[in-house]
Simulated assay, not measured.
Amino acid sequence: MELNTYIDHTLLKPTANEREIIKLCNEAITYNFYSVCVNSSYVAIAKQALKETPVNICTVVGFPLGASSTPAKVYEARQAIKDGATEIDMVINLGYLKSRNYVAVLKDISEVKNAIGNIPLKVILEISELSKNEIVKACEICLDANADFVKTSTGFSKSGATLTAVKIIKKTLKGKAQIKASGGIRDRETALKYIEAGVDRIGASAGVAMMSGQVSSSTY
Rank of each mutant, 00 (worst) to 15 (best):
R100W: 09
N56K: 13
T53Y: 05
V91P: 03
I109Q: 01
V74L: 03
Y96S: 14
A85T: 08
V55L: 01
T70E: 08
K107P: 03
N101P: 02
F63D: 08
I88V: 11
R78D: 13
S68M: 06
K47I: 10
K98I: 05
V105G: 01
D83L: 10
P64G: 08
E76W: 04
I81P: 02
S69V: 08
A49F: 07
N56T: 01
L97V: 04
G95I: 07
V105W: 03
T70H: 01
N101D: 15
Q48N: 15
S69R: 04
N56V: 00
Y102W: 14
I81T: 08
E52D: 15
A104R: 10
V60R: 01
V61F: 02
E111H: 05
I92R: 02
S68H: 03
E111D: 12
V91L: 02
S110T: 12
E111P: 01
L65T: 14
K73C: 11
K73F: 10
L94Y: 15
A104W: 03
A72T: 15
S68V: 10
D83T: 02
V60W: 00
I81M: 09
K73P: 10
Y75H: 13
A104P: 01
E87C: 05
S110P: 00
F63E: 07
T59G: 00
I45T: 15
G62I: 02
D89C: 05
A104D: 12
D108C: 06
V43Q: 00
V55S: 01
Q48V: 10
Q48W: 07
T86C: 02
E76S: 14
R78H: 11
A67G: 12
D108A: 06
V74D: 09
P71Q: 11
I45Q: 12
N101I: 03
R100D: 14
Y75V: 11
I109T: 02
P64L: 07
S110R: 07
P64F: 11
A80W: 06
V74Q: 06
G66D: 09
G62H: 03
A77P: 08
A72E: 13
F63C: 04
M90H: 05
I109H: 00
A46M: 09
A49Q: 04
Q79E: 15
S69A: 07
Q79W: 09
K73Q: 10
A85W: 06
I81Q: 06
S110W: 00
S99W: 08
V105P: 03
V43K: 00
E76H: 08
R78W: 08
I57R: 00
N56Y: 02
G84I: 04
G62E: 06
R100A: 14
E76Q: 13
L97C: 06
K73D: 13
I109R: 01
G66Q: 05
